[in-house]
Design a protein around this nucleic acid. Structure first.
Length: 639
RNA sequence: CGGGGCGUAGCGCAGUCUGGUAGCGCACCUGCUUCGGGAGCAGGGGGUCGGAGGUUCGAAUCCUCUCGCCCCGACCA
């Protein structure tokens, strides 16, 4: 039991002007954190207590599936050069020199270090599988830290790594993490979704992000009532069938003069068609990560339905590029053969021949496409033509003719042009049916709290980790890597709760204003103070016992006794024994986000106290002898 | 890195345009009153006006340079 009068809890009535998002303001006002620099924060006692509770839950669940390490943050740069990530990570990796001039980096993740241990120690299949984890400070020189603790340059991460002899083993390790993560986030009281994610710069096959919907988030995710959920970078949808146009004339592509009709809206109006019956062309020049300026850019041309949008992450994955920029007019002429506004797939100057691609024409053999495009840029490679799945099997579409002021109709993919590859390269739209159950998709911002990843042999291969299998044959262990942002669990919990409170107060305001038309208007335009409450499992204290007036001896004595009883019952208790007015103490208790408050006040004369449940915004009276048992039941988390 | 904004007491701000003794609210200290929703009255402490240079009799204010922070974008296991 801690006494508020002796603690350092510097609450603020007003948030510093720099704070924008709710969790940032509240963490500052509640005395959880103070800022030291851009993306650098000190955790004050309350913040540290909350983080410690989260860490304890994470550790408890991780110990069920793995073993804890503590790896060094200070890494010799050579280690990162060996894996090739020193250049890949670029400026995001902090660099420094020691007194001898040797270059060091501050680790932003630990694949390299853990693999260096694995390659020295893991020699036999008998030693596998292994799941190794740590909870440790990570450093990333973010280009733009923001949102308080949401994106920072120094933060706590639980990272783990699995080593298995084969894919089946990796599946097991991955599944164990999936289960552990769900238990962890559930115990932390978060309402989360697990989404399919893009593999990004990590490389590898499967990956899943754990997200919490919040306006403060930086990612866009799609989910539906059926349980389907995916990052927008990966999300797909089932498209409603489109009625194709009737063929005109001899059914072959027909040149139509369309002077000045460059925009899709103009074209569809001119032909009297829907945008879904038109082919849109989006053309890029792509480059690879760390590509030298001297290396030629890769032309990437995407065709998709007129009413669809390109998703550049998906397109990058297909084209084996990392960055795309729009083609310049002369590039359009060179690689497509037409002017902007009249670009189309028919007769496109496609350098990738049937032969060079070994008949890669559908989305299926993507890995082989990646193999060609990513690792062995083909000599004389010209335009990569990617057609979106939304055009597959369609007929008699309208498209640019690659000729100023002309379009073609009766364009049928497969017959009139052959894309290099057919793949999903579009953004889904809100409300489209999900790919499995057909439930409408909801798009929303979310914050990523965890990520699990089937890594493969990227590091074990490049860093030379090998183990002998039962047959005495040398194999490369397969890795998985898995991360949880500790601070993000805290911020996500605050953001979610603050949003729920904000909704309550606005609903409340609506209720109040509706029936009472002659109200005095006192609610005015003042925005309600943001409020929140943390789940008991991660709050710095589960309960605060508020003695409404410490100068009244019976109240003080009862408060002390109740707090001691709670303490004895194992409930993490804060006793507000300050000589302050009751109002101040109520406000402070709410500000620091404690989920349960016991008011020791007037009702003591009847042998009762009030229990305020901040999560449900309800208050009940309880007899003194039931307090400890009641709170213990409320606050005990089940591991 | 591109665009925008802001640096004046612990926090929130005014003062800058038009140069002339650095102010307000909250917080803090003392006293009295008050005591279940951020109390009232009285008194008090606290400032290199982000930093450096310049213009001027005189600079928070004008000029130059610079540092820091926030937001949007780019970027981002």
């Amino acid at each position: 039991m801690h006494r508020w009068s002796q603690l350092f809890i510097p609450t603020l009535r007003e948030a510093p002007a720099d704070a924008e998002v709710a969790s940032h303001k509240l963490l500052l006002r509640a005395g959880y954190i103070r800022q030291l620099g851009a993306g650098i924060y000190s955790y004050l006692p309350l913040g540290q207590r909350a983080l410690n509770k989260i860490v304890a839950i994470v550790r408890q669940e991780m110990d069920r599936i793995g073993q804890e390490f503590l790896l060094p943050t200070l890494n010799p740069v050579e280690l990162w050069q060996e894996s090739g990530r020193e250049s890949v990570m670029g400026q995001n990796l902090f660099h420094l020199k020691d007194r001898k001039g040797a270059e060091l980096v501050l680790a932003m993740t630990h694949e390299e270090v853990i693999t260096s241990i694995a390659r020295n120690e893991l020699r036999s299949y008998k030693q596998l599988p292994q799941v190794w984890y740590q909870i440790q400070t990570k450093f990333r020189d973010e280009p733009r830290p923001k949102g308080g603790l949401l994106r920072v340059r120094q933060f706590l991460m639980k990272d783990s790594y699995s080593f298995d002899m084969d894919d089946a083993g990796l599946d097991v390790s991955y599944r164990k993490h999936d289960d552990a993560y769900r238990r962890i986030f559930t115990r932390c009281g978060l309402d989360f979704v697990a989404v399919e994610a893009d593999s990004g710069a990590m490389g590898g096959s499967g990956s899943q992000e754990f997200m919490v919907y919040t306006e403060a988030g930086e990612d866009l995710i799609a989910s539906s009532a059926s349980g389907y959920a995916a990052n927008l970078e990966k999300a797909t949808s089932k498209l409603a069938p489109v009625q194709d146009l009737e063929a005109t004339g001899d059914g072959l592509p027909e040149l139509v003069s369309t002077p000045g009709k460059a925009a899709i809206a103009d074209v569809t109006e001119f032909f009297g068609i829907h945008a879904s019956q038109d082919i849109k062309c989006v053309a890029f020049m792509g480059s690879r990560t760390g590509q030298a300026a001297s290396e030629p850019l890769r032309p990437v041309v995407a065709f998709l339905r007129g009413d669809h949008q390109v998703n550049e992450t998906k397109l990058n994955a297909i084209a084996g590029t990392a960055e795309l920029r729009p083609m310049l007019p002369e590039e359009l002429e060179l690689y497509i053969g037409g002017p902007a506004g009249y670009l189309g797939p028919v007769g496109i100057a496609q350098g990738m021949t049937q032969g060079s691609l070994n008949g890669l024409k559908s989305g299926k053999p993507l890995d082989r496409v990646k193999g060609i495009f990513r690792d062995v840029p083909t000599e004389g490679l010209k335009t990569i033509v990617v057609m979106d799945l939304g055009l597959e099997g369609r007929a008699n579409l309208v498209a640019g003719a690659n000729k100023q002021d002309f379009h073609l109709r009766n364009v049928t993919p497969g017959r009139d042009f052959t894309p290099t590859v057919i793949a999903d390269i579009r953004n889904i739209n809100e409300g489209e049916p999900d790919p499995f159950a057909g439930e409408p998709l909801r798009l929303g911002k979310a914050v990523e709290i965890g990520h699990i990843f089937k890594l493969g042999t990227k590091y074990t291969e490049s860093m030379g980790s090998r183990a002998l299998n039962a047959a005495g044959k040398e194999v490369t262990p397969i890795m998985g890597c898995y991360g949880i942002g500790i601070e993000r669990i805290l911020t996500a919990a605050i953001e979610s709760s603050a949003a729920a409170f904000a909704k309550l107060t606005t609903d409340d305001a609506k209720l109040k204003t509706q029936p009472d038309s002659n109200a005095t208007g006192s609610q005015g335009s003042r925005t309600p103070e943001p409020s929140y409450a943390l789940p008991a499992a991660i709050a710095p204290y589960a309960v605060v016992v508020t003695i409404t007036n410490v100068r009244e001896a019976p109240l003080l004595e009862a408060g002390e006794r109740i707090a001691a009883e709670l303490d004895a019952a194992g409930v993490d208790t804060l006793l507000d024994d300050r000589d302050e007015r009751a109002g101040v103490k109520f406000k402070d208790a709410e500000l620091i986000g404690i989920p349960y408050r016991i008011n020791v006040g007037k009702k003591l004369a009847q042998g009762q106290i009030e229990l305020v449940d901040r999560l449900t915004e309800t208050t009940i009276d309880l007899p003194l002898d039931q307090v400890a048992a009641h709170l213990k039941a409320l606050t005990t988390s089940k591991p």
